[in-house]
Amino acid sequence: MSRRDIAAVLSFSIVAMFFIFGALMIHPFGAPDETGMDDNIITNAQTETGANNAVTSVVFDYRGFDTLGEATILFTAVAAVIMIFRRLNK
């Protein structure tokens, strides 16, 4: 077992310990702590955006910039994949 393997096992165990403790000590399932913003969105989504689906109103209206960044990432990935395979498809 080389030194590299020992370092990998050690770091993996430390990260695993943090994850297990975090999963056990987080707030109980089904009772989120801070819900003010989401309650505001649930209450006002219909009158402010006109959409019955609150999730869609968040995606395209309240947090449109996130969707813009996501569209940019999708565009970049498609362009990169087509560029990578262009030579193979000739």
Binding site: T49, G50, A51, F60, D61, T67, L74, I82, F85
Partner: peptide, 28 residues
């Protein structure tokens, strides 16, 4: 007939996702 620009954005993003995913699968 509700939603403002949300249905139009849905159509734009839908066109983008159809063409993008199908392009990826077709090329691969």
């Amino acid at each position: 007939n509700t939603g403002g620009v949300i249905p139009l954005m849905n159509f734009a993003v839908g066109l983008k996702v159809i063409a993008g995913l199908f392009g990826i699968v077709l090329v691969m």
